[in-house]
Design a protein around this nucleic acid. Sequence first.
DNA 1: AGCACGATGCTCT
DNA 2: GAGCATCGTGCTT
Length: 181
Amino acid sequence: MAELEREFFDRDTLLVARELLGKRLVRYEDGTRHECLISETEAYGGFEDVASHAHRGKTPRNTVMFGPAGVWYVYFVYGMHEMLNVTTGAEGYPAAVLLRGGVTNDGRRIDGPARLTKYLAIDRRYNRLPAARSSGLWIEDSGAIVPDSAVLRTPRIGVAYAGREWSEKPYRFVLSTDYTI
DNA sequence: AGCACGATGCTCT
DNA sequence: GAGCATCGTGCTT
């Protein structure tokens, strides 16, 4: 299947978050493919998005968000969880999509960003690496057509600190449970 | 089924 | 030193 190139990610963050639903996330290591379909995403980005890590400017942690699109941004929270994001948009514009859930090849749903990274054994060693085969972690077009009727939009999870305006924006995209590839 | 809470370490003020 | 883009457990209804 076709690997998603930088051009796919070098677009509006909300569009990328929407279109990542139904795509295949693949990690390849030691001759084994670990993979699942992406079923939940969230868009973070721009200077004004108070919920975004980049809102207060560039720091050592979020620097990768300011770089080119199609690069992994993996960070550690709550003392135990790895969060997987892909950068989007033009260089200099800080934005990324958080991958929050997947569906395994046997149809099991992996709900939650920490569960997703745990399932695929993804951690900070992928931070700053390209979302490409060369890094061993990439995203493929699965061939699935995901119609708008199968996509739910809701506010983002766990960002109440950002205030009502930004925590209530419908920047979370979920593949409805009755949709099967 | 839903809420409260503790775990645990890194990041930035 | 505070708080976090979370999750599992254990308790209440």
